[in-house]
Design a binder for these strands. Sequence first.
DNA 1: CGTTATTGATAGTATTACTATTTTAATTAA
DNA 2: TTAATTAAAATAGTAATACTATCAATAACG
Lengths: 224, 224
Amino acid sequence: MTPSLSTFSASVNEGIFLKDPSTSSLGLNILTKSIILIDDLGFEQFTFRKLATDIHSTEASIYRYFENKHKLLLYLSSWYWGWSEYKLVLRNANLACPVQKLNNAIHMLAIPEKTVINGLDMGRLFDIICQESSKAYLVTEVDNLNRHGLFYNYKKFVAILSDIVLEIHPGYPYPHMLVTTIIEGIHHQKFFSEHLPSLTDKPADGASLADFYYTLALSVIQKN
Amino acid sequence: MTPSLSTFSASVNEGIFLKDPSTSSLGLNILTKSIILIDDLGFEQFTFRKLATDIHSTEASIYRYFENKHKLLLYLSSWYWGWSEYKLVLRNANLACPVQKLNNAIHMLAIPEKTVINGLDMGRLFDIICQESSKAYLVTEVDNLNRHGLFYNYKKFVAILSDIVLEIHPGYPYPHMLVTTIIEGIHHQKFFSEHLPSLTDKPADGASLADFYYTLALSVIQKN
DNA sequence: CGTTATTGATAGTATTACTATTTTAATTAA
DNA sequence: TTAATTAAAATAGTAATACTATCAATAACG
């Protein structure tokens, strides 16, 4: 069911990078290794200098691709949502029932595939999404970034899911709230289950997470 | 209904500070002004140097209270949850119905009071909680911090709410998941409504947030 | 009045987050 | 094949950040 990599090229908004990293081997190296480094060190300890030594390049070279590490995080996040949308659309292509579509989506979000796409370790990228991606928007420049469309891919994904919710219950007043609550919730619970288990419930694996949020979604949608 | 300030002294875990800021006027100054500065600049732009000049003190003096700005954020967050617990217990003291208790709690979380407690601007502190507080735990040192009990106040608050959920539906399997989903959800939606409105639904004021999450909670609890 | 704790003043270091410039290497186009 | 263009490496440097250390001044306290 996983789409072949050759057919997928992530469309990440141009404003995020200075030079498209997907067009050169150094750029791809930056992406590949930054995922590993950010996952290992955490975003705050991660620096372009460390990345540079890791890929046997220089800080200056990396700065030609990304203005700063925050933009790199935004790129990874944006790429993730671009990829997720692609997968979702493909998986739901031949489904008619919106409840099935929603179920599909929630499972996709909660149970990450551990494959490698375009050289990028999706398992680690998912961990970054859970632990670091909110730092991409929880910043003072958020309005400015948003004005330039740098959250487009995430917003698009949310919009698609919201439409599915509305298919299930036309006129439901809070589709976006529900969808972002589920998405951010999944990421939080993943983190909690690993680091702050008393903030979640056992077993907090992907399957029970999907179960919890799918039930939640359906109860809420039908209740209103 | 607001408890009198004289009766409340926040109990923040000792490991968070080097010297208790609530015991000196410089300490209180640090707390008061850091709330304003973090709210104005955002946590990443906020520095002890800027805070020092702001309160006409020195960096070194501030470092005598907090190891680093991250610990200061943890203090503010911890103080917020200590205060919230105090308020919640007081408000629910003479209620028997757990559904009413939950309703109370959700309204308290979604509709912040704009008062000043012990000199601390609660309106601004709430904004910090929404925008910055997740950065207090989304770090690599989280396990170490947790081992030292530095998230105690938040976990305690979650535990109290989870117990209320269990009062409503004994045996409900996901009380903690539900509670943290609601709490973090409220904070996210607050932020989204101000900065990324397409990720939420209008009107995203406190009242409709409370409405959304209260309905969500009840549907989910009763469904299972 | 003397002791102790608190803060201020000053200084210094390692690291981070960049920017600029020049050299080398690799591609491509004439 | 050479010249022209582009990408990357090497090197250097700056301002700001995140601290640490030392010592003097002062206030509080018994």
